[in-house]
Design a protein around this nucleic acid. Structure first.
Lengths: 154, 154
DNA sequence: CGGTATGGTCAGAATGACTGTCTAAATAGG
DNA sequence: CCTATTTAGACAGTCATTCTGACCATACCG
């Protein structure tokens, strides 16, 4: 009954979560490179994922959302400013604060990333089937919704 | 129809892959810490995942399997030797080569990690249901099997 | 006003990955 | 047997990403 080359043993859960994610990351950043964003690295996604696309966001807010320190987030924001994806403006509501806001290039990046995500989903659907893909999306969504507050202290 | 607090918008595929994996990692390393392995870090898993548990493996082999350079793998192996999870012995089959082999403590780590993986799967099943869990495992296995050779040059 | 909280910066360190160079051992061809 | 090539690994240096700790400036509250 055993297939030729496919591993027969039960994969660990770590593998089942890690391999798809890591493959997705590799694919996405390779495509971004081809499409005019060669200087974007994986760590930058912590910013792009969490920023308010309209108003911009404070470094402190971004850090909280991404689950990292202000200093680390400030480092990432700095590098994205350097690369012309973000600009810093003063927050009208609080003179201590600054907002990191998407530039034109930053908005292009977000749009491209959105398109690529959908593209990847399509490619995966070709491989495992449309119905399976819908079911996978459904199950993973349930998993994500079930996660918060699970680990004590998270 | 919308639920109270749950995000209504369609989650991106990146999020659906990233969040479960990152939650799993956080949980696993917190449990490892409690169970007597406080010095193990995420990067070490590249070794533990790929090592031959009986014979031990060469650094070069580990690096290939984990998809990283020999130098990076050598760094990780070094630190695991320092922490008494690995020992270095000379390879009887090739006098240039050395084998990194699990110590008693290293084998305990692997056993604990295996148990914890199953434990996590159980906890997740409690949240989303046994049947859903089985289906999720099935679908993710299909995904993992569909991945290799997809990205050109991988 | 004075004290505390908040937003952000600076300095320094640790981790983990990379490239490049080098030695020593093994293997292949003559 | 001898040389040339390959292979396993070590050594040196760099870079990206994250952390801690110390700090400054502004804002808010009694």
């Amino acid at each position: 009954m055993n297939k030729v080359d496919v591993p027969v043993r039960r994969l660990t859960f770590g593998t089942l979560f890690r391999e798809p994610y890591s493959h997705y990351l590799g694919w996405l950043y390779a495509r971004l490179q081809e499409r005019g964003f060669p200087d974007i690295r994986v760590a930058h996604s912590a910013v792009v994922r969490t920023i308010d696309a309209e108003r911009g966001s404070r470094v402190t807010t971004l850090a909280e959302r991404a689950g990292m320190t202000k200093q680390s987030m400030a480092y990432l924001v700095d590098s994205l400013v350097e690369l012309d994806y973000l600009e810093i403006v003063s927050d009208p509501e609080d003179k201590r604060a600054k907002l990191a806001r998407l530039t034109r290039r930053g908005r292009k990046l977000m749009a491209t990333a959105g398109t690529l995500g959908a593209e990847y989903e399509g490619l995966l659907a070709e491989r495992i089937g449309e119905d399976e893909m819908a079911e996978l999306r459904h199950l993973l969504t349930r998993v994500v919704e079930a996660l918060p507050g699970w680990t004590p202290g998270e």
